[in-house]
Each structure stands twice: as structure tokens, then as C-alpha cells.
Design a protein around this nucleic acid. Structure first.
Length: 883
RNA sequence: GCCCGGGUGGCGGAAUUGGUAGACGCGCUGGACUCAAAAUCCAGUGAUAGCAAUAUCGUGCGGGUUCGAUUCCCGCCCCGGGCACCA
């Protein structure tokens, strides 16, 4: 009886498809469970072994929850806009829609071959006009929403109060005022431009080294008219919303970090020469007495005013150089600070002394006010700068608890101290301020209060998060439903969807023009007054479609509304969302932002979209390297006696774990695994490799091990000769219920590796026993089925049950069967386990102690020692303490 | 530099979070079946010593708390991920 997985898997996949087994009904009488995968970008390379990892995990939960009586929503779709299809179009002339369709077909075929229980009738595709119509619809909502700081809510733009003074300046002023409040706005923006992709990209897509996340090329600064979204308006909501979410702490931390909230104060410094004011933001207003100079960013609007004539040439030169620096230069050269004196002085508001104002590029225009007060004694960056330019360092915080030698240096201004301490030199009776002797916390409070009374400043909060650059100069994305008219007015095209024009050439322009600017028939429009207009030629970034796709799955074929509100109320929020950690910030933050806007507008019923999030770990592969660390392609490696050698040079190699890559020839194709071992084996192996959230290396031998288990299970449970009678052997029955208990618990905790181990333990016990009952076989089929659904169905039907088991009730473990009469106590002496002693579970501590002492094995351990006490932890351990 | 993870046999990994370290799988060793091999089945498998019972050591390193520590505390080392002149 061979395990013919090809035949079995095809049969059940066909059965499920033909019977619509996994079609999800909107049955409100049942409790719902919405479980979602991060939908893939259908690349030309096809499925990678990383995809089935997350998909299998959600499939196990889906199948389990159905058997638990839940109405499960488990959909799949395609995040199909994006650059690769467009690059391919530029090279070959093949329309991106054609490439995309082909890739989706391939992905669908591959995913279906894994036996995943998706409701394929809900499949969606972000490039489908029936879908992106609603992406455009949401953009219109964003455009027509402003954030009301009073109520902390997004509200329709029609409700925006326009101040009388603005109104009195005419329609254009009103229009500008409103535009300044919209969550989506069109403006000149200093943007990152990737020359290789010929598009702009979001801050979030630029890596630390100044390269483009998508292609690796260096990005440069460019000034372009762009669409931006005011995500910082929602910073506080996005931050506080994290509290209620059952997400990995690491992901929440990354989002908190990205939002970057800080508490500080704004302080106004007077420039006595001109009488103007320079405002700074600082998180350390308490160190105001130590401010010995100021710095403004090269982009600061007051540079021209502050630079004195004799410094003009040098300063302008510095500013020009700074503007040419790429981000790479700015960070790489961060060790060495640069700057130039403006020639102007500001008055320190607490000391009254004049301090120089410098221009330096270590101060960024995009954060705070673009200007700082510099306190070299208590800020490492300022300290470095002051040292280099010979600016005085004034210690105002005595590090009482620091090492004496360090403390001396700090007090002398020869070292920097950023920790807490006691203030010194921090009083000015004339100004009515004295914080000497206080600590940091009290100092900040005292100064803030003083600033407010003096009307020189106030405590404020700042966020690092910036406006989200929301347009791309590409063809293959959602068109903006926007028309720019010749008179400067911008209007929305509410006739959705706004389709992409059919084109043959997809090259973008050199200077930041989208390929759409060549689609003349599409581009130019005329209104009923013969006014001429031009369509927006930018398209939306790939994030747009993935920002809200989880909502469309709820009601994917609805062409009258984005979704039915009753259905949304029933299905939302997503109960479990599984995907890669690479989306920790971008996708998940953008989605939460859109969702909150939709919530404020009453379109969705929940404040957060994803109640629980889980990141699967990356699947890696073994790779080989020589003694000096050179990687060797896997086809050049041979194994002999557990060691590895270079096939050509004979050099000994060491095995390492690395990412799968074409160059190392260690990429695993799921199709090959399915062909060789079957979908059930692939699924089970990926779950058995290790904890779901950890990175782990692929091993062909591991697949074989799991394949072996499936074979053994099939050979035993599918063979009628092994099935007889109605009364199960008590030991096997107990093993079965232990397995049920463990599998159930582990599925709920997403610990699939140990659940599978429990299935193996039971399988081994049953095979050892040699015979079992029909009931046991059926129960085993049920608890196996979430992991290996094809084999589960096969074993279920083989013994005469009607297919399918997908909605059969999940078995409960019978706790009475698991109860033990005896417990084998490990007996330790001074913490070292020496032997085991079987005792009745019901025995009390006193009797247990007596039994231990009476045991003949105990005597030898007592020789020459004095008994101090015997610790008994019922049902756990016995420890005899000797002196 | 800062913030998260993580270091357990030859390998992937278990351990009800303070109670028998190494479940399960791979690999390896021996045996059965076979003309032989593969497949399958059975037994063994942390290290060291011993014929053995058994003893000693053992969860990155060094301390500590405890009857008892992979688990808790203090101080380090290494690996992975994220952020990084954010005032």
C-alpha cells in the first residue's frame, strides 16, 4: 500500500473545488474569524518557499477554526501593480497587464497546488479596474478630509471652518487655506529621486546608506510637484492605537520609533541686532544655562537675514555645498562636523549673554524648527562641534555619581555628560530663575514653567514622522482621479474608475515626467465651458492598493459600494494577520493610517484594522564557504563523511546558513518539492522546521523525515488489516487524547512544530501497538487534517465516512482519560536526579517523604551525610537536602 | 551609539516559564529482510571514564539568589534584525 500523494492530492483538490467546500457564506448566526495573509506581489519568478510558510500557518488555523464552528474568512489576492512588470514592458514592449495576468495565473496555480483552503471566489487584484476604482475613491476621501485637532478626528472638508480674515482675501485665498488642511495635497516637494528607476520614492523607501530599497541605486534630491499625504496629523492616534494591539512588541517598537514622539520645549531667542526672534526646539530646556551657541540648518529661512555681509560669501558657499550633498554624504561624513559662523549673535534668555549663531548641516530643517540651542557640555553632537570650532563648553550639570576622574573633566568642560545630575551655575536672580541643586526631571519642569510665564516658550511635543510622498512617475499604478485646469484650479474626476490609457511605449521622461504624459488622447480634457485641463500623470505608489485590500475581501464583487456596511461590521477587524517582518513599518503603518481616516468618516466600524499580527521568520538555506570566507555555489560542493569539499579544488568547506540566492544556487522551488514529496509534505515540513517566527534553514533531509511520517501514517491507518473492533486499547486511547490536547493547545499558540511532533509521537505509538479502531483512525485523520489536509481527507473517507471532514467538529480531549493513578517522581539529592520512584498521585507529602526514606536506593546517598529536609512538589519532583 | 530578538548534542530544534536538560525529526552505529542494493522494520546514540551498575562534566562566558537555574538578578562576549547628527 503505497502512499500515492499525487493521486490523493489531485483528487481532494478537485473535490474541494467542485463542491465549493471553502466558499465563505455571510452567515451572521455563526461567530466569525477573519484570517489574512499578506497578499503577494506576483513576480515572474513564481512562488518562493517563503510564501507557503505563512500561507500554511494561516491555512492550519483556518481549517482548525472551521472545525471549531467558526465562520472563517480566508481570502487571497494579488498586489499586482509595481515596477518589475513595467520594467519588463520597457524592455520587451509587452504590456504590463499581460505580464501581470500571466504571473497571477502562475501564482494561482502554484498556490492551489498546496491545498490551501482559500475562498477563490473572493480573489482580488489591485490592477483590476473594479478594484482600483475604490482605491481612487478612498483617495478622494483623503483629499476631502481635514484633521480636527480639537476632536482629534478626521472630518469632511465641508465642515472646515475658514477664518474670516482668510475669507476676506477672496476665493483663491480660501482655496489655498483649504488645500493646506486636506490630508492629500499637491505641492512642490524636496523629494528623493531614483535615476535608475526614474521615479521618486518615499522617505521610507530610502535606506540608511542613501540607496533605493527597490533597486539599490543611490537616490538624489529633486524638487518636484508631488502628491503628499499628511500622515503626521495622525501621529498621536497611530501611536496610542498600538497599545490595544496584539502585535509582536518588536513591530510596535519599530512603529513607535518611526513616529518618533519626543517631549520638549520651544524657546524663542532674541537677535538683538535686528530685533527678530529665532525659535528652537529642544528636549532639554533645563540646560538653557549651558547654551553657548546656536545652530540653524542650511535650509533655514532666516539664513539670509542672519548672515552678516562679511560672512556672506563663505556662508553661501557652505549652504550651496550642503544642498548638493546626498544623504549618503551627510551620514557617512557624520563623524566630522562642519559649519560656518553667520556673524550674528542671539541673546541667551536666562543668562542674558550673547551667543554666536552658526549654520551647520548636522541640524535638519525637517525636524523641530530647524534650529537648535547648542549645549556642548551636555550634548555629544554639540560637544564635538564646539571642540572643533573652539566654542566655550559650560558645565551646568554636576554628575555627582560619575567616576571622580570623569566628573572632574565634565566640570572643567573637557567631557560631555548627558545623564542626570545636579544643576550648578543655573541661576539668575535678575530673571527670577534658579534651578541649582535640582535634578533633570524637576529642572525641566521649572524651566518650562518659567518660559511660559515669561512668554519665551512652552512645552511641546514633536514627531519624526514626515508627510508621505504619495506619487510615482510610472505607468503601472493607479491613476489619480485629478485634473489640473489651465487656470490653476485642481478638481477631482469623480467618474470612477479613471482607467489607464492603452500605450505601447512605457519609458518615463528624463526629468520626472510619467509615461502617461505621452498618452495625449487620454491626457487632455475640456469641460463644458471649453476650459482646457490636463490629467494628473503621476500614479499612486504600490502601497495604495495594499493599504485597504483586507476591506475589499469582505465584499469583493460589490460594484455599487466599496463594501456592504453590514458585512464590514460582521467581519472586521482582521482577527489574525500573518506576513513578513519587512512590512513592520511601511505597509502596516500606511494601512493603519487609511483605516483610521475611514473610521473617522464612518466608513469602517473599527479604529484598527488588524487585531493580532504575527511575523513568520525567513526561510534560509545552507551555503558553503572556504576558510577565508569565500562563498561557494552549491553545485560545486560535495559531501564526504559529514564534511564538505569543493568539487574542483578539493578545498574543505564549512557549512553556513545564508539567504537563498541565485548566485549560491541554493534556491528551493516549491513546485519541485510538491512534485517529489507532495503538498502535504511541503506544508508539514515548513511547519516542522522550527518556531514560526524564527529564521531557519531549509534541509532536504528534513523534508524526507516528514514525508516518512506521512508514509508511515498512511501505511498504518489506511490498511484495513490494522483496523478492528470498537474498543480501543486503553494505552493508545490515552496517547490519542494526549495528542488531541497537545495539538489543540499548540495550534492556538501557533506552535505548529511541536503540534506535529505530538502527531508523530501518537503515530509511533499506534504503529508499535499494531492495531487500532475505526474511531481512533477517524480522530487521527481530523487532528492531522489542518497540517496535511489531503491525507486527512483520504484517511477520513477510506473508513467509510462521507467527505469532507472540513466541517466535522474538532475532537475534545477527554481529561478523565489523561488522569494518572501513579506518578513517577524523579528523586534528587541536593538537586541531582538519582533515581525514579513511582508513587500514587493521591499520596500526601508526609507519606511521600516516608516512602523516599524507606526506598532501598536512598540508603547509599545518605551515607556519611546528615538529612536536612525533603522537599516535595506534588506531581513534579522530590529533592532530598543533605548537608 | 541606541532599541528589539537570539546563543541548548554532529544538525533542525524540545523543555507545562523555577522542578527529570536534549521530546520529535535528521544524521550516524549495529542488527533483521535481500543474491545484492534501495525501501522497510528493530535496537542504540550529549561528552568523558568503565564490561557494567554507576560516576563526573554539560544549555555562549564570569558571578549571584535558591533545596533546585536553560528559565530569575548583576557584569561581559558573540550572532541576527531595526534605527541612527531627530536636538
Amino acid at each position: 500500500m503505497d502512499y500515492n500523494f499525487v493521486e490523493i492530492e489531485q483528487r481532494w483538490q478537485k473535490y474541494w473545488e467542485e463542491n465549493g467546500t471553502f466558499r465563505t457564506e455571510n452567515d451572521f448566526s455563526k461567530p466569525k474569524y477573519y484570517i489574512l495573509d499578506m497578499f503577494p506581489y506576483p513576480s515572474g519568478a513564481g512562488l518562493h518557499v517563503g510564501h507557503p510558510e505563512g500561507y500554511t500557518a494561516t491555512d492550519i488555523i483556518s481549517r482548525y477554526m472551521r472545525m471549531k464552528g467558526f465562520n472563517v474568512l480566508h481570502p487571497m489576492g494579488w498586489d499586482a501593480f509595481g515596477l518589475p512588470a513595467e520594467q519588463y514592458a520597457i524592455q520587451t514592449g509587452t504590456h504590463p497587464a499581460v505580464t501581470t495576468r500571466k504571473n497571477c495565473d502562475n501564482f494561482r496555480r502554484q498556490i492551489k497546488s498546496l491545498g490551501l483552503s482559500y475562498d477563490w471566489e473572493r480573489e482580488i487584484n489591485t490592477t483590476d479596474p473594479g478594484y482600483f476604482k475604490w482605491t481612487q475613491w478612498i483617495f478622494i476621501r483623503l483629499y476631502n478630509t481635514w484633521y480636527d485637532r480639537e476632536t482629534c478626528k478626521g472630518r469632511p472638508i465641508s465642515e472646515l471652518p475658514v477664518p474670516g480674515e482668510v475669507r476676506s482675501q477672496g476665493d483663491a485665498a480660501v482655496r489655498d487655506y483649504i488645500a493646506g488642511k486636506r490630508l492629500a495635497y499637491y505641492d512642490n516637494a524636496q523629494v528623493w529621486w531614483c535615476q535608475s528607476c526614474r521615479t521618486v520614492c518615499a522617505n521610507e523607501e530610502v535606506l540608511t546608506d542613501g540607496s533605493h530599497e527597490k533597486c539599490g541605486h543611490q537616490v538624489i534630491r529633486k524638487n518636484l510637484k508631488q502628491w503628499l499625504l499628511r500622515i503626521p496629523q495622525y501621529a498621536e492616534r497611530l501611536l496610542s492605537g498600538l497599545e490595544s494591539l496584539d502585535w509582536p512588541e518588536g513591530v510596535k517598537d519599530m512603529q513607535r520609533n518611526w513616529i518618533g514622539k519626543s517631549h520638549g520645549a520651544e524657546v524663542d531667542f532674541c537677535i538683538p541686532a535686528s530685533g527678530s526672534t529665532l525659535r528652537v526646539y529642544t528636549t532639554r530646556p533645563d540646560t538653557l544655562f549651558g547654551a553657548t551657541y546656536m545652530v540653524i540648518s542650511p535650509e533655514h529661512p532666516m539664513t539670509a537675514e542672519l548672515v552678516t555681509p562679511e560672512n556672506r560669501a563663505a556662508a553661501e558657499n557652505y549652504i550651496r555645498n550642503a544642498s548638493l550633498k546626498s544623504d549618503l554624504d551627510r551620514t557617512e561624513l557624520s563623524r566630522e562636523k562642519t559649519g560656518i559662523f553667520t556673524g550674528s549673535y542671539a541673546e541667551n534668555p536666562v543668562t542674558g549673554s550673547l551667543i554666536p549663531v552658526w549654520i551647520a548641516d548636522y541640524v535638519l530643517m525637517g525636524y523641530g524648527t530647524g534650529a537648535i540651542m547648542a549645549v556642548p557640555a551636555h550634548d555629544t553632537r554639540d560637544f564635538e562641534f564646539a571642540r572643533k570650532f573652539g566654542i566655550p563648553v559650560k558645565c551646568i550639570l554636576d554628575p555627582l555619581h560619575a567616576e571622580p576622574s570623569l566628573r572632574e573633566k565634565v566640570l572643567a568642560g573637557d567631557a560631555c555628560w548627558t545623564e542626570d545630575g545636579n544643576y550648578i551655575n543655573s541661576a539668575n536672580p535678575v530673571k527670577g530663575i534658579d534651578i541649582n541643586g535640582l535634578n533633570k526631571e524637576k529642572g525641566i519642569a521649572a524651566i518650562n514653567q518659567w518660559l511660559e510665564v515669561q512668554k519665551l516658550g512652552k512645552a511641546t511635543v514633536n514627531y519624526k514622522i514626515r508627510d508621505w510622498l504619495f506619487s510615482r512617475q510610472r505607468y503601472w499604478g493607479e491613476p489619480f482621479p485629478v485634473i489640473h485646469w489651465e487656470d490653476g484650479e485642481v478638481t477631482l474626476d469623480e467618474e470612477l474608475p479613471v482607467l489607464l490609457p492603452d500605450m505601447e511605449k512605457f519609458e518615463p521622461g528624463e526629468g520626472g515626467e510619467s509615461p502617461l504624459s505621452n498618452a495625449h488622447d487620454w491626457l487632455y480634457v475640456t469641460d463644458q465651458n471649453q476650459r482646457k485641463g490636463r490629467r494628473e500623470t503621476n500614479t499612486m505608489p504600490q502601497w495604495a492598493g495594499s493599504c485597504w485590500y483586507y476591506l475589499r475581501f469582505i465584499d469583493p464583487r460589490n460594484d455599487r459600494e466599496i463594501f456592504n456596511p453590514q458585512l464590514e461590521k460582521y467581519w472586521m477587524p482582521v482577527d489574525l494577520y500573518i506576513g513578513g517582518a519587512e512590512h513592520a513599518v511601511l505597509h502596516l503603518l500606511y494601512s493603519r493610517f487609511w483605516h483610521k481616516v475611514l473610521f473617522d468618516l464612518g466608513i469602517v466600524s473599527t479604529d484598527e484594522p488588524f487585531a493580532r499580527l504575527f511575523n513568520q521568520g525567513m526561510i534560509l538555506a545552507f551555503a558553503y564557504e572556504t576558510a577565508n570566507g569565500a562563498k561557494v555555489s552549491s553545485d560545486l560542493v560535495e559531501e564526504r563523511d559529514g564534511s564538505w569539499f569543493h568539487r574542483e579544488t578539493g578545498e574543505p568547506l564549512s557549512q553556513i546558513v545564508a539567504k537563498m540566492s541565485k548566485s549560491l544556487k541554493n534556491v528551493i522551488n516549491p513546485d519541485d518539492v510538491v512534485r517529489q514529496y507532495g503538498a502535504d509534505a511541503l506544508r508539514m515540513y515548513e511547519m516542522f522546521m522550527g518556531p514560526l517566527d524564527e529564521r531557519k534553514p531549509w534541509s532536504e533531509k528534513g523534508v524526507k523525515g516528514v514525508f516518512n511520517f506521512l508514509n508511515r501514517a498512511y501505511r498504518f491507518f489506511a490498511d484495513p488489516d490494522n483496523i478492528s473492533g470498537d474498543d480501543e486499547d486503553p494505552y493508545i486511547l490515552k496517547q490519542l487524547h494526549q495528542a488531541i490536547r497537545k495539538v489543540t493547545l499548540d495550534i492556538e499558540n501557533l506552535k505548529f512544530n511541536t503540534a506535529i511532533s505530538a502527531l508523530m509521537v501518537f503515530n509511533n505509538a499506534a504503529i508499535k501497538k499494531g492495531k487500532t479502531t475505526r474511531t481512533t483512525a477517524a480522530t487521527f485523520a481530523k487532528i492531522l487534517s489542518p497540517f496535511a489536509p489531503h491525507l486527512g481527507e483520504e484517511l477520513w473517507s477510506i473508513h467509510g465516512h462521507t467527505p469532507s471532514l472540513a466541517y466535522e467538529p474538532w475532537p475534545d480531549s477527554d481529561e478523565t482519560l489523561l488522569r494518572e493513578e501513579l506518578f513517577e517522581y524523579p528523586v534528587s539529592f541536593n538537586g541531582k536526579m538519582r533515581f525514579k520512584l513511582e508513587l500514587p498521585v493521591s499520596m500526601n507529602t508526609g507519606d511521600i517523604q516516608k516512602s523516599v526514606l524507606e526506598s532501598e536506593k536512598t540508603t547509599k546517598y545518605l551515607e556519611g551525610k546528615t538529612l536536612k529536609k525533603i522537599i516535595v512538589v506534588p506531581h513534579k519532583i522530590i529533592n532530598v537536602v543533605l548537608s
